[in-house]
Amino acid sequence: MVTEIAPITFEYSHTIGRQENRSGSGFFYPIAITRDEENQLYVLNRGSETPAFFPCKRVTVFTVDEELVREFGTKVHPEEADASAPDGTFMWPTAIALDKAGNAYVADEWLNRISVFDKDGECVAKWGTLGDGDGEINRPSGLAFDADDNLYLVDSVNHRVQVFTKEGRFISKFGRFGTGDGEFDHPWGIEIDGNGDVYVADWRNDRIQKFDRDGRFLMKFGTSGQGDGEFNRPTGVAVDKDGIIYVTDFKNDRLQVFHADGAFITTLTGEATLSKWGRERVNLDPSMVRGRERAQGLIEKEKLFHGPIAVDVDDEGRIFVVECSRQRLQIFRKQTANFSGGPL
């Protein structure tokens, strides 16, 4: 008897974003994403190293229907990018996570600072000390809250994960530099699933590692390369309610999807179309409209991922993929088995 399991497939939904160097309805080198309980999306913009752009480094809050809700945070000038940087400013922002109360925690890997913003976008707290001791951090690159509102922080240059209370008090840590199980090389993104298990994008080891809530190694998958299940610098990881794992395979410009056990399912390379904000912008300028009409290979080229860097999923089976080099996110929907009944 042959059993065919319905394959997991994905349908492209839509694209959100456009390039907005300073602020407004768009992004500038978006690097991280999260959602709040009302399913509003928070995108953290890494922005530019070019001092002229202001505020450029910011958090943009918007709906899945591409309505801008608000933005908060701003950049600090490189010359002032030290411990004295004003509250609410960023130099090299990397990660964002929301606590149960809806406060946004933003990590900055240059300032080695976690900034906390309330729902109005006011910076209400900050913490973080450079170092390699317990509770000290060196280039934080990933943030995730567990069910108890404890913050798991990827401490990238110390090649470990540290767990803090949301006030920044050290609780525990795991990991060290290396290539063995439970060891890391400049880890980046982090995700905690419904069981409290922890997934880390072990960036320079080109693999994903999974741990239990106490940091005990559970499994790993992936190796360097371009084939199925291989990675070239994985940056972000997300797990949906069915345990399916999504990984942004940054330098391979693709998203890979895996079963809960790490078995490869499929690869997405991008389906982007013109977003609502993008259409609004293009329509302002007749030369852009004409240019797009005449452009050769536009549809094929524009759909591809460029620098997919972060991924998030919601309980409705939607997958949000952030592309740092294209100032947008692409949204996909996971398809369930198709019964195909009904009238003809």
Binding site: R22, G24, S25, R281, L284, D285
Partner: peptide, 11 residues
């Protein structure tokens, strides 16, 4: 800059 604004600024 462009005559038509872009909603928040001008190009």
């Amino acid at each position: 800059r462009r005559v038509q604004e872009n909603g928040s600024g001008t190009d």
